[in-house]
Design a protein around this nucleic acid. Sequence first.
DNA 1: TTGAAAGCGTTACCAG
DNA 2: CTGGTAACGCTTTCAA
Lengths: 350, 350
Amino acid sequence: MNKPTKTPEKTAKGERKRATSYDVAALAGVSQSAVSRVFQDGASASKAMRERVMAAADKLGYRPNAIARGLITQRSNMVAVVISKLTNLYYPEVLVQLTQRFSERGVRVLLFALERESDTGLVVEQMLQYRVDGVLTAAMFTPEELRTIENAHIPVVFYNRTSKDQLVSSVRCDQEEGERWLVDELVAAGHRSFGIVEGPADSVVSIERKMGALNELAEKGITDVTTVSGDFGYETGRRCFAELVQKHGSPPDAVIAANDVMAIGCIDEAREVFGLAVPGDISIVGFDGVGPARYAAYDVTTVRQPVQRMTESAASMLLERIENPELSPEKRAFSGIPVRGGSARLPAAK
Amino acid sequence: MNKPTKTPEKTAKGERKRATSYDVAALAGVSQSAVSRVFQDGASASKAMRERVMAAADKLGYRPNAIARGLITQRSNMVAVVISKLTNLYYPEVLVQLTQRFSERGVRVLLFALERESDTGLVVEQMLQYRVDGVLTAAMFTPEELRTIENAHIPVVFYNRTSKDQLVSSVRCDQEEGERWLVDELVAAGHRSFGIVEGPADSVVSIERKMGALNELAEKGITDVTTVSGDFGYETGRRCFAELVQKHGSPPDAVIAANDVMAIGCIDEAREVFGLAVPGDISIVGFDGVGPARYAAYDVTTVRQPVQRMTESAASMLLERIENPELSPEKRAFSGIPVRGGSARLPAAK
DNA sequence: TTGAAAGCGTTACCAG
DNA sequence: CTGGTAACGCTTTCAA
């Protein structure tokens, strides 16, 4: 005799409980294991069996319980995706693309959104409790948090952040290289005094971009450099420009903003408040290649991140490491795509 | 050396398995049930017990397995959040805020991103398999999909879409009201010929906005109305403006775009290609109140959605229905916030 | 307050 | 190919 034939029980409130593989088995007159196999990929089940089970299954509206499966297989088929605040306008695109990449391969995304990039503590705890198979993060973890995750044998891939001393996998856009291109072009076009608008202090991306620009400027022997800092948002872009002019005593020849949105803020402030022509009187450049950078009123000279390739690469890298935990860490850097917009005087493209 | 009496087992590959409540119990010399209770909220455990268990737990790096918990409690503590493509620029903010609202209340977000708003089929299947406790969707489901979800007794809340004939909960911005305001102001300022730029055909939001505007224009006795359609993106905003002028024979007095991004496209096209002054020669308005609408070059007259209140409300509404499944459906509509930007000639605010 | 034991809904293993 | 049975890691009675 089979297990107690449980017809879909009703609770006190008269709600029908959701059908389980036992219900399906009973209705189809087969064993529960058989039902399980029918719903697996490479399982052995005769055609007749398959048909009977499927018929019973959709009569009952049965769906395998992914939670229970996860428990036994030790695979949740979920990955954690961590993003910090999206003020950057650049992440939404990344997020959607990542989700789609994972989705295509049968992996679900558990989303964690941080108020500030440094709020990672609770999030790590949650990811671990939910037994995610992997972590893709666009926020930095502390070394201790990272160790906690690795102790649990969960592969991690960093998106646009990495650390030189730690052995972690990452996919990033080569910020330094991008800044180098911007600086070289601006210098070649004759700009000699520079303003730099950096982003929030806890943003690794911002730091890399700033350092990339500063190093290359030093390399070129440019010493007239003023730095101010904002938060990646439009309003601070405007404020930063004003601050820059005040600090420098006059508008510099060129402004290098840590992202497009702040560059746009600078352009507006330069035009509206200081009556400067862009790029006639001053050149302003950004980074990212977000949508608004292409709006005609700004047409920002920038470096576009190859989002599609980066997300594709990041998703693959993580999934590979889930399949094969022995794989050693790998850092992939993608070159940004120079965009010669109308917000800067540059030498003609060669 | 301090090897615990029962070391966490090792697998063939030498990987340490993650500690379970049994491991903790063994190390602490108590029963497994005790461990379980210590990690619960309103459970009874003596102080001594609690301390011993906690000590053992973090020596082993133990974390309760949320998957296993979900299996027994019949609660995954996960909700599905469904978004369609984010070209709208408006959703990223919504998404992050929603995630944070849920997170604050101990609920995780399983994210589903649709390529097109009509790709809902597979997504429903996945949500159901993962036994999410609720669904918050910014995409429309077919009546059949909706029935499937409701048969599983999973509460659903629609975000910015609803249907008049179906009994579903929803939180939305009152698009019609917003459009009415825009139309009234524009008409009061003397505009007599109108262009309407609608969004993608499968977007309910776009349809509501268009109908809201058309109805109010009819109400006001305006008959000179030309309609063209885009996809919510900047480029089509530009194309649509050109199309509008061609279709109408000349630029209309005012253009009502279904969202801010297309309004911005219209503004650029009007200025750059047609040499029109905005708002001198033509008024252009949008909807949403996204970031770029506030950039100085555009300063779009628009209706801002009260995102914060809407997300807060949507999250609460869903969580309430998870707690209490008997609650009947409820539709909440929020008024948009009029923003008198510089892209339209309007009567002075009263 | 504590412990023993019975599930929760699967997959995995092993005989037939 | 098929069916029985033991996990998976937890919460939840029910006694003690």
